[in-house]
């Protein structure tokens, strides 16, 4: 038995994969890609630039923000954008620019955590369900398809309403609705991959189910998961912002783009445009960054799409 395991590692293509080699191969493929893929490459680079900038903003807001997010003595109330307050001030004399900068923490944190949570539940379920097949797979797929077909935001609203406001609760509400995304994706891939010749080869030399699943099939799913993870974060950002816009997200006191828009809404009739415009643009930019990153990756890692 031990002998077989050894050959398994040395000669079968699936055995080559280690997380480190996989990652460096991934990076190599992407960095070589700019020669072949003109515009797609630049779309992805722009996406990466936006995402990195926003992450920097989330980690070091105090380096960029002129004021604290809750500082209520920054200047006049509801002042239009000026040199002192590039994004203006809000009804409580807070600096809108500083609130936008600090708000990136909340939304990025929640979106990342939610996407991570749904992926660590959705991916294993998809792997096992697709590989095992049978009645278990049928039932699980039906459940996942049903959730997938339901408007995600409405489900998240129901969850958030029952759980009450809070950073952890909103993360849970957002993550639940994206589990089927990962499940469906991974399951679909496993269904094709498990018929591949190299899987049959692995089985013929005595590799067990769990070894086939995690050493031979899973590494081939990672690229697609990376694409979807990036697109999923964009969606999670939109959902988080929507939940806090309708007042189901966060307790007061945490700077948040969606909540700031809903506060600004009451001042819109008097022409105060800056309180909603800038947080909204920030949401669009952040979601766009992750979408562009995901799309660029998908064109490069999934070259069939380029034929189009």
């Amino acid at each position: 038995m031990e002998k077989i395991d050894k050959t398994d590692k040395m000669t079968v293509p699936g055995g080559r994969y280690s997380p480190a080699s996989l990652f460096s191969g991934f990076i190599k493929k992407i960095s070589k890609a700019h020669k072949t893929y003109g515009v797609e490459w630049w779309i992805m680079i722009a996406g990466i630039a936006i995402v990195l900038f926003m992450i920097f903003m989330a980690f070091f807001p105090y380096l960029l923000a002129p004021f604290g997010p809750e500082n209520q003595s920054t200047g006049p109330q509801l002042a239009a954008p000026s040199a002192a307050h590039p994004f203006g001030t809000d009804n409580l004399q807070r600096d809108v620019l500083s609130r936008v900068i600090y708000g990136s923490r909340t939304i990025l944190g929640v979106a990342f955590a939610a996407a991570f949570l749904s992926s660590i539940i959705g991916i294993p379920l998809g792997l096992i369900s697709g590989y095992a097949g049978g009645i278990f797979d049928r039932i699980l797929s039906l459940i996942m398809d049903s959730i997938y077909s339901f408007p995600g935001l409405i489900l998240a609203i129901a969850f958030a309403a029952m759980l009450g406001p809070g950073v952890i609760n909103i993360t849970l509400a957002v993550s639940v609705i994206y589990i089927p995304t990962y499940f469906r994706l991974v399951r679909g891939q496993v269904l094709t991959l498990k018929e591949e010749l190299y899987v049959e080869a692995a089985r013929s030399i005595g590799a067990g189910d769990s070894s086939i699943l995690f050493k031979y099939i899973f590494p081939n799913v990672i690229a697609t998961v990376a694409i979807v993870f990036s697109l999923n974060i964009a969606d999670a950002i939109m959902t988080e912002a929507a939940l806090s816009y309708i007042g189901l997200g966060l307790p007061a006191g945490i700077p948040d783009w969606g909540m700031d828009i809903s506060i600004g809404k009451s001042f819109l009739p008097s022409g105060v445009w800056w309180m909603i415009t800038f947080p909204g643009l920030a949401i669009i930019l952040l979601a766009l960054g992750f979408t562009m990153l995901g799309e660029g990756l998908s064109e490069i890692l999934n070259p069939r799409l380029l034929e189009k």
């Binding site: 964009a234 939109m238 912002a241 929507a242 816009y245 969606g258 828009i261 949401i283 669009i284 766009l288």
Partner: peptide, 8 residues
């Protein structure tokens, strides 16, 4: 357009 929050 896909990234624009509908309420915004």
């Amino acid at each position: 357009a896909y990234c624009i929050p509908v309420y915004w």
